[in-house]
């Protein structure tokens, strides 16, 4: 059953335009789809036959590594050299409020049930350092009676099931084959969903570049066989980094020889940053 269009060719200015544009767009799209599809197929089929494709990083195969990070809080002396090194190595915003790694101080005053917690961002500590670009802990508890006190270094946990990756609407943050959670700043639109989603507060918004920032385990260093800057400079061996695929690595040894824990295991994020020497209040 076919009906003749009403109105014929007189009133058909808009319709004709739509028809014409529709045809043109459809053919263009079909060409594009066909072309892209063919190209895409060709590319992937070749790669699949020859070898699994890996990112072109010199002398580095990300399928060979499974990086892990260890923190021995019993060793940390709170010198904050890791924080300065991280800022210098990665060009992190030179303020006292943007950190890829940081250190917290937990202090239980005599008889108190809950700890007092501060980090290098605390106003007292900024005053002690003398500037926003230098970091040190002040000695505010030197004359107090203390039940217990220690430092805890913090860093992105590079989770096995990262909630930040799950919520990213643009695919700007992702987990690599070798275990790092990275951010593609070209694709980041600065919506900060990931900042909200991270249970560890490991992400922050860089006001200068309008993108989200976080620890990369110094991806440009570890892919060259170096240690992350924070591990490189730690004078007391409180930070440990290595390949969990390699039994002789520092991190494998650390995991074998210690009873380790992760932060907030109940979130199901499954961190690959392992701690020893934490207390129940630390999260």
């Amino acid at each position: 059953m076919k009906r003749k269009p009403k109105g014929g060719d007189i009133k058909s200015g808009r319709r004709a335009f739509l028809r014409g544009f529709g045809k043109a767009l459809a053919s263009v799209s079909a060409l594009m789809i066909g072309g892209a599809g063919l190209l895409g197929k060709k590319g992937t089929s070749d790669a699949a036959v020859i070898k699994p494709e890996i990112p072109p990083i010199p002398d580095y195969d990300w399928t060979e590594h499974d990086w892990g990070y260890g923190i021995d809080a019993t060793r940390c002396i709170g010198c904050l050299r890791c924080v300065e090194a991280c800022k210098a190595e990665n060009g992190v915003a030179p303020t006292a409020h943007h950190f890829r790694t940081w250190v917290e101080r937990y202090v239980w005053l005599e008889g108190e049930e809950r700890p007092l917690v501060d980090s290098q961002s605390d106003p007292g500590n900024i005053a002690a350092s003398g500037s926003q670009k230098e970091y040190r802990f002040d000695n505010r508890y030197q004359d107090k009676k203390i039940d217990k006190a220690f430092f805890v270094p913090k860093i992105c946990n590079h989770c096995r099931h990262p909630s930040c990756v799950q919520v990213c609407p643009t695919g700007a943050t992702f987990k690599t084959e070798d275990g790092a959670v990275l951010i593609d700043h070209d694709y980041c639109i600065g919506c900060q969903y990931c900042v909200q989603a991270c249970p560890y507060g490991a992400r922050f918004f860089d006001p200068a570049d309008q993108v989200t920032e976080k620890c990369t385990w110094c991806y440009h260093r570890i892919t060259k066989g170096l240690q992350p800057a924070c591990v490189e400079v730690c004078p007391v061996g409180a930070r440990i980094f290595g390949d969990m695929n390699n039994e002789a690595s520092d991190i494998s040894k650390f995991l074998r020889e210690n009873r380790v824990q992760v932060l907030k295991p109940e979130t199901g994020n499954a961190p690959t940053c392992f701690y020893i020497g934490l207390d129940k209040e630390v999260s």
Partner: peptide, 11 residues
Amino acid sequence: VPELATGKPKY
């Protein structure tokens, strides 16, 4: 990924 892996180590 290769973009993030480039960059000269400063330390």
